[in-house]
């Protein structure tokens, strides 16, 4: 009965959504002269950043990214707070079965490569598709692999916390430096260099590297916390 009602409601809702989004008018009315072209234009001419998405994420809409980083930080803190236990209550790692020797040997082999790949992705965030979030996530998967493969692999919570804090502080500090040097928060106050050089785009790569560190630390922390949770 309940399912029937829900299906009926969803059918009505889906009908409205379809009417809204599948209508050709939805596209026709689009104002293509919005902010898009400006961004594409200025990314090359002023920011000297090859990846427009990165330019938008870090510079044009850098404030959003700051908020986003805060959300991640909050999520990590919230996880710690919600699953909070006194220190001596922390349980063993919950893994279903011990890893086979192939996995443990292989993961040791592959771990540095993953870290390297992650670092590469976030260092080249302003040139190639990728960036701090993506690179950070890749690094975190490396740690996840190690945590699954080795029962005794452990990461110091304090170290993670320090990395996370410093990365966050670095982000805000660069923002404030922009505020002091250029008059607005997160302003790109460093020389922008030449397009497609590794060192170009001013503060954009710097901030993205910080974001990469932060995301990596936070995701690793999240994984670590959940893995140590007894059901």
């Amino acid at each position: 009965m309940k399912k029937a009602i829900v299906i009926f409601l969803l059918a009505v809702f889906g009908f409205f959504l379809a009417v809204t989004f599948l209508d050709p008018d939805f596209e026709a009315e689009r104002n293509h002269n919005g902010v898009k072209n400006f961004y594409l234009d200025k990314t090359v001419s002023q920011l000297k950043t090859a990846n427009t998405v990165t330019a938008i994420v870090v510079n044009f809409r850098g404030f959003d990214t700051l908020g986003e980083v805060t959300v991640l930080f909050l999520a990590a803190t919230a996880l710690g707070s919600i699953l909070f236990k006194k220190r001596h209550h922390i349980g063993d790692r919950t893994v279903l079965m011990p890893a086979s020797s192939i996995v443990s040997a292989g993961s040791k082999l592959i771990f540095p490569a993953i870290i390297l790949l992650g670092a590469y992705v976030f260092i080249h965030g302003h040139l190639t598709p990728g960036g701090g979030f993506q690179g950070g996530t890749i690094i975190a998967t490396g740690f996840l692999l190690m945590l699954i493969a080795y029962r005794d692999f452990s990461i110091s919570h304090n170290v993670l916390s320090v990395i996370e804090s410093f990365a966050g502080i670095g982000f805000v500090t660069f923002g404030l430096l922009g505020f002091m040097n250029g008059g607005t928060f997160l302003q790109n106050f460093m020389g922008t260099g030449v397009l497609n050089d590794l060192i170009s785009g001013g503060v954009i790569p710097v901030i993205y590297i910080l974001v990469g560190f932060k995301v990596a630390a936070e995701l690793t922390g999240l994984i670590y916390t959940i893995l140590h949770e007894k059901g």
């Binding site: 829900v6 409601l9 009505v12 809702f13 409205f16």
Partner: peptide, 11 residues
């Protein structure tokens, strides 16, 4: 469920 019903009513 209220949420969905509310959306549909408004629509």
């Amino acid at each position: 469920l209220y949420f969905v019903i509310f959306v549909i009513l408004l629509l």
